[in-house]
């Protein structure tokens, strides 16, 4: 019979507690994550590729802002953003706009914002997404300038 006060028993008890806590958290989050996935799937099919290309106007700042907005409202696998970004470049869209689009796609989550607010914090989620949007535009312009000089 194992000693109830032994380190092994104590570890097993702690492990049981940790598993229980994780299971409860995951069960609470399952409807949120399922809902988010459903929204992502809908947006992904709702916005066609041709819509993106028609939007850009060949203006450094404006195109970066447009790239950032499209990247922010889009959701899905980053691979999709590379494919779309590659198509934008082929269609003559500037590197700053494409960069802002790529960065915003993976750092800003408008679709996931309600989930981020619910699980983390409203003020944090808004501040994070807002700064990430500004940084996407800044990074777009900076990347273009750096590539121009090196």
């Amino acid at each position: 019979m194992s000693d109830p006060a032994s380190p092994c028993t104590d570890f097993r008890r702690q492990l049981g507690k940790s598993l229980d806590k994780s299971a409860k958290t995951m069960a609470r989050l399952l409807p949120i994550i399922t809902g988010a996935l459903l929204l992502v799937s809908l947006f992904n099919n709702l916005i066609p590729r041709s819509f993106y290309v028609a939007l850009f106007q060949r203006n450094l700042l404006l195109d970066s802002i447009i790239g950032c907005v499209i990247g922010s409202i889009s959701a899905g696998h980053p691979m999709t953003s590379y494919i779309l970004g590659g198509e934008f470049l082929k269609n003559g869209v500037g590197i700053s706009a494409v960069t802002a689009f790529l960065v915003a796609w993976v750092t800003v989550g408008v679709v996931q914002l309600p989930v981020e607010i619910m699980i983390l914090d409203r003020r944090f989620a808004i501040a994070r997404n807002l700064t990430a949007s500004i940084f996407a535009i800044v990074l777009g312009i900076l990347t273009m300038l750096i590539l121009h000089f090196i």
């Binding site: 590379y82 494919i83 970004g85 590659g86 470049l89 590197i95 494409v98 960069t99 790529l102 960065v103 994070r128 700064t131 990430a132 940084f135 800044v138 990074l139 900076l142 990347t143 750096i146 590539l147 090196i150």
Partner: peptide, 21 residues
Amino acid sequence: YFGLKYILVLTLLMVTFSVIQ
């Protein structure tokens, strides 16, 4: 899609901006 130079520049900038953020 974008070339090694572009990806290197972007990655370094993103790491830097992550700390700034």
